[in-house]
Structures are given as structure tokens and as C-alpha cells.
Amino acid sequence: MKYDVRELPLLSNEEIAQGIFDMRLEYKQTDLPVQCGQFAHVYVPGKSLRRPISVCDASGGVLRLVYQVKGEGTKIMSQMKSGTVDVLVPLGNGFSIEKGKRYCLIGGGIGVPPMLYTAKQCDNPLIITGFRSESLVILQDDLKQAGETLLCTDDGSAGQKGFVTDLLRAHIDEIDEVCACGPTPMLKAVAAVCKELGKPCQISLEERMGCGVGACLVCAVKVRKNGEEIMQHVCKNGPVFNAEEVVF
């Protein structure tokens, strides 16, 4: 059986920046191995739908989910203090990382968390993260241990003032391939730069979900395969897609 619902013991659930929480769950060696870029579908008591959250890290027997409080579901998650959390994990297809390539990992805002576990699978990656402002900056210490990091903010309150694409352009000759996660406008811009400069690019997409496993078909995304536009699904075919194939 490929899927299972797990009741994972909650180790901690702390606020690491304004409205952003770091949930750590016990994850045993015997649990299914997690690929970078995969996600967890988290059960929220009292809600009809689970919440999809990317795996931020899955090493050392701990599953980390770093999430921002947006609406009611993530608010309830942020109030969990002990006991177990019901998660469906690991789900989806993550980033594919090959040996011998230098990757540029780009994270924007709450798209940064999955880049930590991804960085741990790469050989000396270049990690570019961008945030709106200093109060939202997360995970810099963890990322520094996993590769070379570059930081920017829209208002210049931390790191360089500007966008992740400015840093990508400046360092494009140092890398072979790009993996990115973040808001759609950022992903579009990163995909455009990669196309222009001839670098392969994988992007992680978001869509509202039901089942999380590919059965209900609600999380549709349009992709182009062999010249034909078809509907695929973020939970099963993704969340990571080849940027060239996505029809934004």
C-alpha cells in the first residue's frame, strides 16, 4: 500500500516569525521515505478538508512543516500544543535532483520551507530566498548549513533590495538548473528568466485540494504535453512540474 494515514506525535509547534509556525512531528525510519518537494495533507479537527503543507525537512526522525496562518484551518493548526497530528504523507511528486549538477533553489515567502529539505539533497546548491520584508524572513540559519545563500526583500529591510529574479540573473552562469517555489507571479518570472537564458526549471505549484491523492480531480492545472493542452493534478502529477510545460 502506497498511502497511509499517520498519527504523528507532535514534538513542538513554535512561531518562528510573524504568523509563521514551525511544526515538528516525530517521523520514524520505518515511515515512508520522503522525497524533497513532496507535501503532507494535514487533518484539522472540525474542518471538512485537510490542509496541504510542503515538507520543510524530513531528516533525523523529525518531519517539519513550516506554515503561515492564513485562515481558520492554519489558525487551528497553530494552536495545537501536544498529542498527535493526523497527516497523510508523503504525497505527490517532488523535485528531481541529479548528481553532478549545481542547482539554484529559489524560494519566495512561504514557498521557502520546501527548499530546506531540497537543499539537503543537493551538492552545494545556490539558495536564493526572497521575502516582502524583514519580519517575514525565515529559515536562514538552516539554509546556510545546506548551501550558499542569497537573501533579498522587496523593501530592502533584509538582504539585498529587489526580487529573486535579479539575483538569479546575476548568478545564472554558476548554476545548471533551477528549482523554485513561491507565489505564482514569482514562479512565472523565474520560469521566464530560465527560458530566456536556457536553464531547465522545476516549479512547485499550489491549488485548492480535496482528496490529495488524485481521485477527486479538483486541483487541476493546465499543462502542455506533446503539443497538446491537458489537465493534470497538483496533488498527483505535481506539486512539482517542469516550468516549460505549465500553461499559466
Partner: peptide, 13 residues
């Protein structure tokens, strides 16, 4: 091919 997304929303219960 179905409708464009979003195709789902949560409601009370």
C-alpha cells in the same frame, strides 16, 4: 477537460 480551477471551496461542515 472540466472547469478551470479553483474547483473546490470549504463551507461550514
Amino acid at each position: 477537460d472540466g472547469n478551470p480551477p479553483p474547483r473546490i471551496a470549504e463551507t461550514p461542515s
